[in-house]
Design a protein around this nucleic acid. Sequence first.
DNA 1: CTGAAAGCGCTAACAT
DNA 2: ATGTTAGCGCTTTCAG
Lengths: 328, 328
Amino acid sequence: MSTIYDVAELAGVSPATVSRVFNGTSVSEEKVAAVRDAAARLNFTPNRTARTLRRQSSEVIALVIPDIENPYFTEMARGVEDVASEAGYSVVLCNSDAQVEKEATYLRIAIAEHMSGIIIATADEHTDLDSVLATGRPVVAVDRGTDYDIDEVVMANRAAGTSATKDLIDAGYRRIAYIGGPEHIDTAAERAAGWRAVLGASRPELDLDELARFATFRVDGGRAAMEELLALPDPPDAVVAGNNLIGVGAIQVLTEHGLTPPQVGVAVIGSLPFTTLSPTAVTVVRLPARHMGVTAARMLLERIGGDAQPARTVVLRNEIQSASVIRG
Amino acid sequence: MSTIYDVAELAGVSPATVSRVFNGTSVSEEKVAAVRDAAARLNFTPNRTARTLRRQSSEVIALVIPDIENPYFTEMARGVEDVASEAGYSVVLCNSDAQVEKEATYLRIAIAEHMSGIIIATADEHTDLDSVLATGRPVVAVDRGTDYDIDEVVMANRAAGTSATKDLIDAGYRRIAYIGGPEHIDTAAERAAGWRAVLGASRPELDLDELARFATFRVDGGRAAMEELLALPDPPDAVVAGNNLIGVGAIQVLTEHGLTPPQVGVAVIGSLPFTTLSPTAVTVVRLPARHMGVTAARMLLERIGGDAQPARTVVLRNEIQSASVIRG
DNA sequence: CTGAAAGCGCTAACAT
DNA sequence: ATGTTAGCGCTTTCAG
């Protein structure tokens, strides 16, 4: 690999001039040409590591997510990436696998690699951001809140739970169960609270605790919980799924039991990007994941640019796509 | 951020000793303790950039994929990540978005950041790897072949096309269409060839060109092609989908037309991780994506370790999960 | 086993 | 506008 010294020598200028050419400061026409020519001839690529070491910052941002296989997060990643690359930043995707230790490792890497900012959907409500924040790096929380006073972009989780449940009630379902993610994750708790409030008011006779299940935010979690609910002495006639993957799991189990929606009502919080269901069979509360990524990236870029206004919380509105079935 | 000099001073040793402690070379018990203690007290994190600059290599590998929203690639990414992190490497995920320019940018970054190796599912058959290879960095191609003599891990694409088609024939379908990815991508071409060979032999009366469609490897591609096929004067009674997303699109359109599988036969090359279909409705040729990632990562790590044997090609066997429907 | 010192490639004062 | 030079933080000879 050639260096700016090689280029400088071939072009007959100083290394500093080469650096200037690659950084857009004022250099005379002719020297620019000479440098570019020499660089091309040597197949020169500036060494980012050296540059980063010198500048103490790099044009890369870390995006830490708990499940890279969840389309919700990859859709968000797309949003982040589009904004970032537009601004000349690359984004490094880190999969914490919902494990605090892995998450901590990636956070450490982000610091050690001088990345200029972090967008994180935390693995745990109490993720420790002390050391990152101590370095002065901006951090934007997405999807889930944190214990810190930082920018965050979240969904209207409670509203999502509310409207999903209401839709099922309007469609005529009565015993509406809920399968959510781990209770200690605030999004999961909020969505459940929405369901609880609506159903408690509308169907006071129901034992809500019997109808609520808290699983992992994954397909197998949804499957297991749905099996449990179906095994109840008095099984539910509808279910609200706390996220996309839980929804998939629940629908799979229902289908296997010959209870294809809308035979049993299903409302899913989150989009089902790869579903092959008829769009009228299941109610979907669309969560604007891409938009979340876009918003978070913009905010982060602002902070990287030096913006020091107080921390903001953006709550993204969701959009319900109701199953058009009216029941009994 | 504190440096080894700070730690050295606090611990009463030289910077070199601090470095040795963090790199596992022989240092006396007591000094190790002193250094660790000082480091902890200063909340010291080694600066990877400096280390990389000095060592001319970093423990990160780049994984370049054409579509981060395709579960096939994220599943593969998981495999790569598991192996890599086991070996102390972190993996940086780069989404080329099937664009050669974006891909080239990420390749450039990989070089400039001194990443120690690259796993790539190319955006284009003729992706230019010259500059990467010129640096001596190992590159492993996954999913798709390249013009270069490098390690590759691919699926048994032709066989996938063959068995998908055979299964549909065995189930009694007659006019079996094919929707594949862009013809210039070798995987797409091979899968199509499998379909063509089987169908040509078994149903010589069919006009294969009429029944073949080449789309993007995405849901909308599958949708558009399926619509076209259904609009044919004599529409097909079955279809082979060239990848998972095309399959999803095709099934969506069929469902919307009231032609839910297995009313029209569907065989998909690639797993459908988030479908809610009954498993007996659609034939799936499972592609071991995770395994592909694991294999590629292992090979890359070997190369990084200095292994210089001739380039290998690993072809991964697939597994068919037949729809258990027998027709006519 | 330990320390001193050079240097990885680049940028940013500081001169000129 | 351009060149000179001093590091950024770390690893790694080379001495001792």
